[in-house]
């Protein structure tokens, strides 16, 4: 191939989604637009996704970062999501959570493998910068498949 690029140089792909019962998707819409405006490719879903579906979406879209918005108590489902991702072999995908997460719960999320919690009031610069770093890290992880 003439036009070969290293995997790290590729445009980051991010899945922006919501799990659980809360349907307020303003926050996730704003974040999706921020990421697009900084040159990333965003796969955007409706709220109310099931954990299995999020795993399937992660697999099919080969995303680097999973951004889950939570404004109610749906973030308590995230440890389950983390376990499901690991079970499916997607431990290299970085997961970030944004929205309203009490401090005590933040520790639980980080313990379960979440890379970062963005609280309300996080700036665009901060969110974009961290997510693009996480995408780069995800790309550097050992490949899930090698083609020879």
């Amino acid at each position: 191939m003439v036009e070969s690029e290293s995997r790290e140089a590729i445009i980051p792909r991010v899945l922006v989604t919501k799990i659980g019962l809360d349907g307020h998707d303003r926050g996730s819409r704003i974040v999706a637009a921020w990421l697009r405006d900084s040159g990333m490719e965003v796969i955007y879903t409706a709220p109310w996704q099931k954990i299995d579906t999020v795993v399937k979406l992660t697999q099919e879209e080969d995303v680097d970062v999973l951004a889950v918005s939570s404004l109610a108590t749906d973030h308590l489902l995230i440890p389950k999501l983390m376990a499901a991702l690991r079970e499916a072999g997607y431990q290299h995908v970085k997961v970030v959570v944004g929205g309203i997460v009490p401090d005590a719960d933040e520790a639980i999320l980080l313990d379960s493998g979440v890379s970062r919690v963005f609280h309300t009031g996080s700036t665009k610069e901060e969110v974009v910068q961290r997510i693009s770093e996480f995408a780069e890290e995800a790309r550097k992880a050992p490949a899930v498949v090698t083609f020879d």
């Binding site: 445009i11 999706a32 637009a33 990421l35 697009r36 405006d37 900084s38 040159g39 990333m40 490719e41 965003v42 796969i43 955007y44 879903t45 409706a46 099931k50 299995d52 579906t53 399937k56 979406l57 099919e60 879209e61």
Partner: peptide
Amino acid sequence: LSGGAILGDRIRMAAQEHLRNLFIRS
């Protein structure tokens, strides 16, 4: 302008997302 994109077509296909014999890629 940015080179980025919001890929939202599969929102409309959500009802079939659980199907094992379907693979969607944006």
